[in-house]
Structures are given as C-alpha cells and as structure tokens.
Design a binder for these strands. Structure first.
Lengths: 151, 151
DNA sequence: AAGGCCATGTAACAAGTTACATGATTAA
DNA sequence: TTAATCATGTAACTTGTTACATGGCCTT
C-alpha cells in the first residue's frame, strides 16, 4: 500500500480510539524500509510509492501485539471547558453542551452504521468489538452530557 | 504557583480527560511571563520560581474558554490491540482483557472517590460533573470489556 | 485541452516524552 | 553528618500538526 492508502485504512479501522496523520505515516515508511520491515515496490502515478510488508515486518508486528497495552490517553477539550464552567458567561455552558450533543449524536450514528456494515460483511468479531467500543463511548458521553449543569 | 504546583493542580483537576507533563509547563511559563500573562515572584527553595497570573492573563484565559471546543482525541492501546485480536496467540486477548478490567476497576473506584470528596467539600458543580465524566467513561469501558470475544 | 479538484509527498513547526542534573529535606 | 529521597528545573528527542508544493484525474 501507499502512504495514503495506509492512512485511509488506519482511519477506517481505528477511527474512534486511535488516529494517525499522513505526515506521520510518510515519515515512518522510509525508516521501516531501511529496517527491512517493508519493501518498496515500483512507483505508481503521482509518484505514489507502494510498500509491501516483509516476513520480518510481520514478525515485528506480532511482537508488538504482545507488548503490554499501556494506559489510555484522552484529550477532551469539551470536558476541560465544562470543568471551568464557573468562569463562563451565563448560557455559554449550555451552548457548549448543545453543540457537543449534536456532534456526538452524529458520531454515535456513524459508529452504529459501521457495526451494522461489519456484521453484514460477516467480518472479524474483534473488529466488530472495536466498532462497538465506539458506540459504548458515544452513548456514555451523550448520557453524561444530559447530567451537566447548564446554569 | 510554581511549575510543580501547577502540574499537580492540573492533574488533580483534569486527570481522566486531559494531561500535561512537567516539561510542557516549565517550557511555557517563561513565554507566558514574556507575554505578560503571568508575573514571576521571588525564588523559593530549590530555585523554585513561583508565578502569579496577571489581569491580562485572566482575560486571555476567559477568551480561550469561549473558543469552540474542538474534537476530542483518544489513544487507546488496549482497543487497538483487541482490534487485531485475530492475529493474537490463543488466550492472549483474554489476558489483555483481564488486565484491563483490573486497571479500570481501580480507575472507576478512584473516580467515585473523587466525586464523593468533591461533593463532601461542597465544591463547584462543574468540577463534580467532570469527575462524573470519569465514572461514566470507566463504567462504559468495563461494560464493553465484558462483551469482547476472548476466544 | 484547460481549469478545478483531489491525492501524493515534503518541510517547518508545535506539542509531548524521556532522561538527566541539581538542590533541599528527611531519616538513619 | 551522611545517605537516601524527592522536588525543581533543563535539554535532547520523538511524536503529532499545519502549511505547502506538485502532479494526475475528471469535468466541461
């Protein structure tokens, strides 16, 4: 795959709980090739450089998989601002909450659609589980939003 | 406050949904002083440099508060690994899930304790809400863990 | 075949992490 | 009073973001 294809595949697979940017991917690929984990193929249109994973790359991946998972890491600007609610102008918190509700309702719908699609395709049950994580997260957030004081 | 005090206060206030490191804080403080948002006080023991916020600093803070909240950003290495469950050795997913359950049960207990403490202190209801976000998140994650296929 | 559009890749920058050096405080 | 511990701050490095340049594709 090329850098762009990898980014698209990663987003498709990980969207609610992980992210990568194109620049990260493009930066890493030459290093991975150097290390022998991927092998560059011949250039396509637009100077697109495809790579194929090598046997060593697969080994390294499996190795990485077994490493302990490490703590998760959240950055939630909405909750951060709500925590300073006492410093807000009147009505500002309600505004924040309403906007967030709209956005997360959309995200919830997207997660549900993704689960439905994966199930229809008869896909890997672990992938379905990660998509269901998206639903669980969005539902929890929406329910929490309903409890935030908006005064 | 000094850099160390600021880090401690930030962790106390934001722990489940935001984080800062000491290095970030120490790096920013001289710049904020330069910009007139904080004023350095006299050095304490261990060359500790305290800062006080200025009127301009408070204005800048209120300004920042009203900015739109931006999307939240999660990095969850556990869900990431589970998504690749099909590539794991047998039993490995169960191991991951069991470890995670322990850790998140502890985190849930910590969140609950924090809510109880804030309520006892009669604190700011917005702060209580952010602590309750921690509970909601941990509960959702734990319930989701119970649905993950461990075969 | 010309112009707008989208995908590829690069480069400069900002934010986040890790490892280190130093100076008080505490305890043996 | 010496050694261990802990808090302060710094510096080097890694990761993540934003802004940019270029080149095929697709429509008209």
């Amino acid at each position: 795959m090329t850098g762009g294809e990898l980014v698209a595949a990663a987003k498709e697979r990980m969207d609610p709980f992980w992210s990568v940017t194109r620049s990260q991917v493009y930066r890493e690929l030459p290093g991975l090739a150097e290390a022998g984990y991927v092998r560059p193929g011949k250039l396509g249109p637009r100077a697109a450089q495809p790579y194929a994973i090598t046997a060593a790359g697969k080994r390294a991946f499996r190795n990485w998989l077994t490493e302990a998972a490490g703590a998760d890491h959240s950055r939630n600007p909405l909750v951060l601002r709500i925590g300073f609610g006492a410093h807000h102008a009147p009505g500002a918190v309600k505004q924040l909450v309403d906007d967030a509700r709209t956005r997360h309702q959309e995200a919830l719908a997207a997660s549900r659609a993704r689960v439905a699609q994966l199930k229809k395709e008869g896909g890997d049950s672990f992938l379905v589980a990660t998509a269901e994580f998206g639903i669980a997260y969005e539902r929890a957030l929406l329910r929490w939003l309903d409890t935030v004081p908006t005064g």
